[in-house]
Amino acid sequence: MAYDEGLYELLKDDLADLQGLEEKRMFGGVAFMLNGNMLCGVHMDGAMYRVGKENEAAALAVPGAKPMAFTGRRMGGFIDAGPEAMAAEDARAALLHLALEYVTTLPPK
């Protein structure tokens, strides 16, 4: 797998208290699904958070966050958290809060 094991453990610890969470390998990394909906995930250079289009501006204000563009095309509603964001507990908490705010509005799959 092409993802950073240390970031995986960090993100997994951030998610430890959530019910209805499962892991799924995808995009060369690991995605964390909440009630069947993608919440966040880890890849080689950082992590991604599904914050929804309504929360993108707030998420992009977090230091180290940038638009997600895996294939060179921007993925609306997803944020890429680089090393700066992943190293800061408050940045990860802010991004996770925004992702939970969005994903918990989605119907379970």
Rank of each mutant, 00 (worst) to 15 (best):
A91I: 03
V62A: 02
L39Y: 04
A99T: 08
E101M: 04
M86W: 09
G28L: 03
E9G: 00
G20E: 01
Y102N: 09
A69D: 13
L18D: 10
L34D: 00
F78A: 14
D80H: 13
G52D: 09
R74K: 15
P67Y: 09
A2M: 07
L95F: 02
P108Y: 03
G36Y: 07
L11I: 07
N55S: 05
L60T: 07
T71S: 14
H97S: 13
A57F: 10
A47T: 05
G36M: 04
A58G: 09
M33T: 06
G36C: 09
L15A: 04
C40N: 04
F32R: 06
R50P: 01
R74V: 15
A57Y: 07
K24Y: 05
G77Y: 06
Q19W: 04
L60S: 02
D14T: 01
L7N: 07
P107V: 10
P63E: 12
V51R: 01
P107Q: 01
E9H: 11
Y3M: 06
G52E: 09
G36Q: 02
M75V: 13
Y49K: 05
A16R: 15
E54V: 13
A61N: 07
D4H: 14
V30Q: 11
V30N: 08
M38R: 03
A61C: 06
T104R: 15
A93N: 03
D80Y: 11
D17N: 12
M44P: 00
P107H: 04
G64F: 00
A2Y: 11
P108C: 06
E89L: 15
L39D: 04
F70A: 13
L95T: 04
L15K: 11
A81F: 02
A93H: 12
G64P: 02
V62D: 03
G46E: 05
A99E: 07
N37S: 12
Q19M: 06
A91N: 14
A87D: 11
R50N: 12
N55Y: 12
V51K: 00
M44C: 01
N35H: 15
A16Y: 05
D80G: 09
G6M: 02
V103E: 03
G28V: 03
K66F: 05
A47C: 07
N37D: 05
A81G: 08
E54Q: 15
A94F: 05
E89T: 13
G77D: 02
V30K: 08
A61T: 07
M75W: 13
T71D: 09
L10V: 14
G41D: 08
I79N: 03
M33N: 08
P67K: 15
L98Y: 08
G52L: 02
E9C: 00
D13W: 11
E22R: 15
Q19S: 14
A31L: 12
T71R: 14
G46Q: 05
L39I: 03
E23W: 07
A31T: 11
F70C: 02
N35D: 14
G6F: 06
N35W: 14
G72Q: 13
Y8W: 10
G28R: 10
A2L: 09
F70M: 14
T71H: 13
V30L: 02
M38W: 12
L18P: 08
R73F: 08
G72E: 14
L96F: 05
N37L: 08
R25H: 10
L34E: 03
L98K: 07
G76Y: 13
G82A: 12
G28M: 03
M48Q: 10
A65M: 11
E56P: 00
M68G: 00
G36H: 05
E101L: 07
